[in-house]
Design a binder for these strands. Structure first.
Lengths: 231, 231
DNA sequence: TGTACATCAGTGAACGCGCGTTCACTGATGTAC
DNA sequence: TGTACATCAGTGAACGCGCGTTCACTGATGTAC
């Protein structure tokens, strides 16, 4: 009844790993980043020590959750942005913003884990760097296309040498060559994007902004204009 | 040797409360928002139950810390901004930004407590609202002065009714009457300001931006221009 | 096709730790007469 | 100025809880001959 005996155990194992991560993810809600390995195990009706067959320590489980969160956000953004008409740069930007926000509202605790205060005592390993940069790569590709199509103009601007160098490094690390003047504007909008989501999610604008959908869209449209994507 | 016997105990008590808060503040660094009442007590060489003479519970101690953090930031910003020439609106904004950033870098764990991910299971009481709004009030006063002096212009802009209402409410809650078009720009800059600090403090721009001083100043200057404070 | 052995998942008890909070208590400091 | 009493700070033991991790073990599933 099983196709490949060799992979039965492997498949069950993979499923179990998923189940453990899912249970742990659920517990992020109540315990925050102070993730409890025991609580997750209890949910699955297994003894806490059994988890060690799958993850060598609590921190490794946390790392898996973080990587998965980044990948999930990255994939969602890539997928949503990819279906927008390539020439509509403004809409590509707006869809990127909206997707990031929608993902964050859906999975607030994973947002907190990845974009909120760092977990005390936890040092993220290098494996998280690549997935973490996926959303930013989407922005970079929009900027690149804008340059290529001649929509984004490089208005001259006084930028200190140190910052020039930093921004060149950002471009280069992605294998891109967006001019620093444009990248500076892009980063500004990027910062406001995440600033907005943090404000909303962490309750810093409660009792002030009621219709966050409308407010967010308004501000992200202004960002598009600022970057120069309104063409 | 003591001036007023009636207040000796009161004064010692007040000092003790300060000592407990200071010890607790130190422990925010290692334990994060998951503040340990016992650890603080140990530092002071006292038994954990003694803390209950001063704070009815751990959460009340946490609340005291949060309120103090907001007040400390608010006072720092007010003090720094107050000595800038009133007519130099751009510098008033920049000093506000720089002071907020400097405070955050000095007290990263208090920043995380107030502007980072919410503490799971902790519900901030209403006492925190007033101190929390002090920094924003400084921005509002800059905007108001800008309007009064005719420096800030209200460029017509399509703003949805819901957002208009929300922004009017923000103004009104402060007893101010900054036009919504100007306030929208102010809030955008405000969001980018805190977005930047969060990115820096939470390590989201590590290995990319080396000279954060220069980068921050550049972006905040752009914000000033955007708001219309460059006059 | 059947047997012998190796691999692996999961158990349950235990270690040693830290936590918030309660409670009856001891002494010292302040207050009233 | 001195005594009697009330107030208060701080102690130390205890309760009941949860945590991450280790370890010797049982049994089931897979592999090799």
């Amino acid at each position: 009844m099983i196709e490949k005996t060799g992979s039965l155990r492997a498949r069950v194992r993979a499923e179990m790993i998923e189940d453990i991560k899912t249970a742990a993810r659920r517990h992020l809600a109540t315990e925050g980043a102070n993730l409890s390995l025991r609580a997750g195990a209890r949910d699955l009706g297994m003894v806490s020590s059994a988890v060690y067959r799958y993850f060598p320590s609590r921190d490794e489980l946390l790392t898996a959750l973080i990587i998965e969160a980044y990948d999930s956000l990255g994939a969602a953004v890539e997928r949503a942005e990819a279906v927008v008409t390539r020439t509509d740069l403004k809409l590509r930007w707006l869809v990127t913003c909206r997707t990031i926000r929608a993902w964050s509202l859906e999975r607030p605790h994973e947002y907190a884990l990845t974009y909120g205060s760092p977990v005390p005592g936890y040092k993220a390993p290098n494996d998280t760097i690549a997935p973490a940069s996926r959303p930013l790569l989407v922005l970079m590709s929009i900027l690149e296309d804008g340059i290529e199509r001649g929509v984004l103009r490089t208005e001259p601007r006084r930028i200190p040498a140190a910052t020039r160098a930093d921004l060149v490094k950002v471009s280069a690390s992605v294998g891109s060559s967006v001019p620093v003047e444009v990248l500076a504007r892009g980063m500004s909008a990027w910062t406001e994007l995440f600033g907005n989501i943090s404000f909303e999610l962490f309750g810093r604008l409660q009792n002030t902004i009621d219709d966050f959908d409308a407010y967010f869209d308004l501000q992200m449209r202004a960002c598009a204009k600022r970057i120069g994507l309104s063409g």
